[in-house]
Amino acid sequence: MMNRRDFLKIMASLGIGSALVLEGIDRIGTAADTIPGSKNLQAGHWGMVIDVSKFKTPEDIQRVAAACHKYHNVPEINDPQHEIKWIWQEDFEHTFAELESEYLSEKVKQMQFPVLCNHCENPACVRVCPTQATFKRPDGIVAMDYHRCIGCRYCMAACPYGARSFNFFDPRPYIEEINSAVPTRTKGVVEKCTFCMERLDKGQQPVCAEASGGAIIFGDLSDPDSPVRKVLRDNFFLRRKVELGTGPSVYYIIGGGGSNA
């Protein structure tokens, strides 16, 4: 008969042995090194300023949204229950609900705003995600790791901006032409705007900023000399639902670049 001490000793040595084997297996996987690329755009805190006055017509917003959706393989599903949106347009009431008033001028009521994920400083979506599929990068981008998303949609319930969409079915049949440089998503995951992190990693600006002809300015909020900080210094701006404490990184300027004082 084996006594309890012997049994524990054998189990302990088996345990150490298998730990060593597993360690060895782990080593095999990484033959070489990985580093951040030299072209990667870096920032302390990525942010965006949207100059609404430069979007003259709703078509201007739709053009920018279409460019984003085309690049990122966002499916076009014409059914509000199932549609997928990264950037889209809303009127004043739905963009700045807390500023609604019956005395608002007709002009302001009619205004259209491009809206997207705000890449919040305190993102509610990140706090509730049980798998850390959505997480905050050190540069402020609230990113999605679709590999880990289990489709619970807690993040959708938590986001006060409706910035997230759920794939109820395979999105591929709804993508007109797949951009092979970018993965699609799959049934059962949540998706949203990424601030074009994969383009920043290649030294490029976000698609919407590029397509907007200067109406969307993108840059490092932590750098006082960055273009975003410059426009914020020179203009009055709004952010969506700041009273919730989410700390949006997307800023709206309404009046236009100070041409008439």
Partner: peptide
């Protein structure tokens, strides 16, 4: 030989490195 036996592990590592750790460049052996 390495790719034949290790590409699943390599892709697994790449996934986390590029998505979660911001490492975008692989230096081969």
């Amino acid at each position: 030989e390495f790719m034949r036996s290790q590409h699943p592990q390599l892709l697994n590592d790449w996934r986390d490195q590029v998505v979660r750790e911001g490492k975008t460049v692989y230096t081969s052996s």
